[in-house]
Computed example of a mutant assay.
Amino acid sequence: MGRKGQSITLSLLEREKAALEKLALEYGCVWGDRPNISKLIKQIAKRELKIAPNNDWQLERINVLERIRTFLIDQGQIDEAIAVAQILSERGELKDIALKREIEKFLQQPLPTWRQRIDSFIRRQKPFQLSYQDAQGRIWSFSIHHAQIVTHEKRQYLDCWATETEGNLDLPELQHNWSLRLDRIQDAAVSPLNEKWRSHLDSISVELHLYRGLAFAYQGKSADVHNDWHPELPKTRQVIRQVTSTFWFFREILPYGKDCKIIAPQSISDLFKQDLEALYQMYNPKH
């Protein structure tokens, strides 16, 4: 006579049953090719599978993972970003409702089709045509020969080299460079261009002198080609950097104030002085 097995009855919602079946598949608890919840429970009872708390992570860990997720998105590594988002979505510590909804929305549709196409062209180093309507209803079209997704001041931008220059107010040497804010693109048409990919954006070599505490505290940037103490001027740090956008360059050095001076080229120095003079006139309209 065969041994009579014992049975238990589980009261489960449909989504809970589906979750258990998913776990059973993940851990190989199957009958034929179908998930078997009973086998899953047996493995847990035998301590072959370990049950761990799902609410013991500190907030700092959640925040770090979220920063990693957004960084991966910026780098175009969507599969990796999805994997991190799935880890976050399964955690019981995720109490921030806004963040939870954002992650759920991302998992449902990680990126719009046009953004996925842009990432694909960048990875394959293939020029492309980008046409879109911005938040103000203006139509823009760019023939892009080099591009990269970057973060400026906590927002994502497409920094790119395009054939078009009309409307670009930068110096003539940099007018092929554009910095397009991605969250202002609601929808876009992206198509291939039969052109040659450029290895980099246009750039200008700029020399800076840093003084006082900044000279000691300055941390080099990836665009710096030289960063050392000046061979002739005491207590002066000489930095030479490749600049692709005067807009972002000026926004970076403005907080340095009197501890930073643009030495060369004169065109960059003059443009920065114009901005400073306009700022001075705004606060001193009678002068």
Rank of each mutant, 00 (worst) to 15 (best):
T151P: 01
H152T: 06
K154R: 07
K154H: 02
R155V: 10
Q156I: 03
Q156L: 07
Q156Y: 06
Q156S: 07
D159T: 13
D159G: 01
C160F: 09
C160G: 07
C160K: 05
W161P: 04
A162C: 12
T163C: 08
E164V: 08
E164D: 03
E166S: 14
G167D: 12
L169N: 05
D170W: 07
L171Q: 07
E173P: 02
E173H: 04
L174T: 05
Q175K: 15
N177D: 02
N177F: 06
N177P: 01
S179D: 03
S179L: 13
S179R: 15
L180Y: 05
R181V: 07
L182N: 05
D183G: 05
R184Y: 05
R184W: 06
I185D: 04
I185W: 01
I185N: 04
D187N: 14
D187V: 03
D187S: 14
A188V: 09
A188T: 07
P192M: 10
P192F: 09
P192I: 10
P192C: 11
L193H: 13
N194G: 11
E195D: 12
K196E: 11
H200N: 12
D202V: 01
I204C: 02
I204A: 06
L210N: 04
L210W: 07
G213Y: 10
G213D: 12
A215C: 02
A217C: 01
A217V: 04
Y218K: 01
Q219S: 06
Q219R: 12
Q219P: 00
Q219C: 01
